[in-house]
């Protein structure tokens, strides 16, 4: 994901801001890392350049 994408992203559940943590980045984009929602205490991974923002706190 490009760095500027983070400007429009939010937590899928509470819609709050996310903290971006970059693990690996090239000239074009962030390849791996995480987006952290402190309000929900949930870490959403970034893998292969795609942020995984599927809701994680739904229960059966």
């Amino acid at each position: 994901m490009k760095r500027e994408l983070n400007d429009i992203l939010c937590c899928p559940v509470c819609k709050g801001d996310l903290e971006l943590v970059v693990t690996e980045e090239n000239d074009v984009e962030i390849l791996t890392g995480a987006l952290i929602c402190h309000a929900c205490s949930v870490t959403y991974p970034i893998d292969e350049g795609i942020p995984n923002l599927l809701p994680q706190n739904t229960t059966s």
């Binding site: 994408l5 992203l9 939010c10 899928p12 559940v13 795609i50 942020p51 923002l53 599927l54």
Partner: peptide, 10 residues
């Protein structure tokens, strides 16, 4: 953005 329409992370 990997996500679902029911909870759009935008």
């Amino acid at each position: 953005i990997q996500g679902i329409g029911e909870s759009i992370p935008v």
